[in-house]
């Protein structure tokens, strides 16, 4: 299957300042691709290039098989875009504004706007300039999703949304992916996209420094485990724990009476679970892996092959 987006050696200069220094990536059609990077890394610039809002200085881009420069309105109708900074002015209601965007994007199924607004908890009868930041963001999401575009380009989509709405947004992304839509989204932190993304790319100072599958990161990531066991001496428990593959940082937190130990485990957790099953546990915490930390340790020192 042809990639939904491909960028090759993308550079962009604003005057003398180069903000993209040769960005390369491919987004597989029907996948969720997250770009992570600090502010100013070039995420927004890359996204604007995809929509022909700004033009790259050099390099090639293909979006849904077409150069955005040549694709014109026909291509952009197949894309839903949420800008990083959303400005909605004017004395119009949300519904009126959405009707305007509907007129200039792909066909919107009847009832779709209301359905999306209801899911996100957005009141369409209020005037847009009176909306809070979060509600404006919801309006932006509705206009991006409403025509069920083949490709969604979402710049920091969860910014300003409260946690419950963020969950609803993640559900919308998963549903879109099920329908075969491709989603390209950005965030400054990995934790925001690790729930939905299949692949993450790390963008730093105008370069992609790593592209990793989230499942791969998860496998390679290190989890923290802590448990309390009774009926066994602490040093025996340490010996048992140390026998598990990929275990590290074993520490005894409590040794009087019941023993409490903590450790880190990388990779497969099956051997650990098997070992734990032989103990009489009174407490067990196996934390979700911190992918952020995994990425940061992997790329703390930029490696040659990661370029």
């Amino acid at each position: 299957m042809a990639p939904a987006i491909s960028a090759k050696s993308l550079t962009k200069k604003f005057g003398r300042r180069e903000v993209l220094h040769g960005v390369d990536f491919e987004v597989e059609a029907g996948s969720v691709f997250g770009v992570i990077g600090p502010n100013g890394a070039g995420k927004t610039t890359t996204m604007r290039c995809l929509l022909d809002i700004i033009r790259p200085t050099s390099g090639t881009i293909r979006v849904l098989g077409t150069d955005p420069r040549a694709g014109g309105p026909e291509l952009r109708r197949r894309i839903g875009y949420l800008p990083g900074e959303l400005f909605l002015a004017g004395r119009v209601t949300g519904r009126t504004l959405l009707a305007h965007y509907e007129a200039i994007s792909g066909p919107v199924p009847p009832g779709r706007v209301d359905q999306l607004a209801e899911r996100l908890g957005l009141d369409l009868t209020r005037h847009t300039r009176k909306l809070s930041k979060g509600n404006k963001q919801k309006l932006g999401l509705v206009q991006a999703f409403m025509h069920q575009p083949e490709l969604l380009v979402l710049d920091e989509p969860t910014s300003g949304l409260d946690p419950l709405v963020q969950q609803e947004f993640h559900a919308m992304v998963r549903e879109a992916r099920h329908r075969g839509q491709t989603i390209f989204l950005s965030s400054h932190v990995l934790s925001e996209v690790q729930q939905t993304a299949d692949t993450v790319a790390i963008l730093r100072d105008g370069r992609i420094i790593a592209v990793e599958s989230v499942s791969g990161l998860r496998e390679g990531a290190v989890r923290r485990v802590r448990f309390t066991t009774s009926g066994i001496a602490a040093h025996d428990a340490v010996a048992l724990l140390s026998g598990v593959p990929n275990i590290g940082h074993v520490e005894v937190l409590e040794a009087d009476g019941a023993a409490t130990l903590s450790a880190t485990i990388g990779g497969d957790i099956q051997p650990l679970v098997r070992m734990l099953a032989s103990l009489r546990l009174t407490d067990l915490v196996l934390e979700e892996p911190d992918l952020e930390e995994a990425v940061l340790t992997m790329y703390a020192a930029p490696r040659e092959e990661a370029q």
Binding site: R48, L51, D52, I53, G72, P73, E74, R76, R77, I79, Y81, P83, E85, L86, F87, L88, A89, Y101, I104, S105, G106, G140, Q143
Partner: peptide, 14 residues
């Protein structure tokens, strides 16, 4: 300048 043109141009218009 108000940032709204960007979103308009991202739609199906020339």
């Amino acid at each position: 300048e108000s940032g709204q043109l960007e979103l308009t141009l991202a739609h199906g218009v020339r």
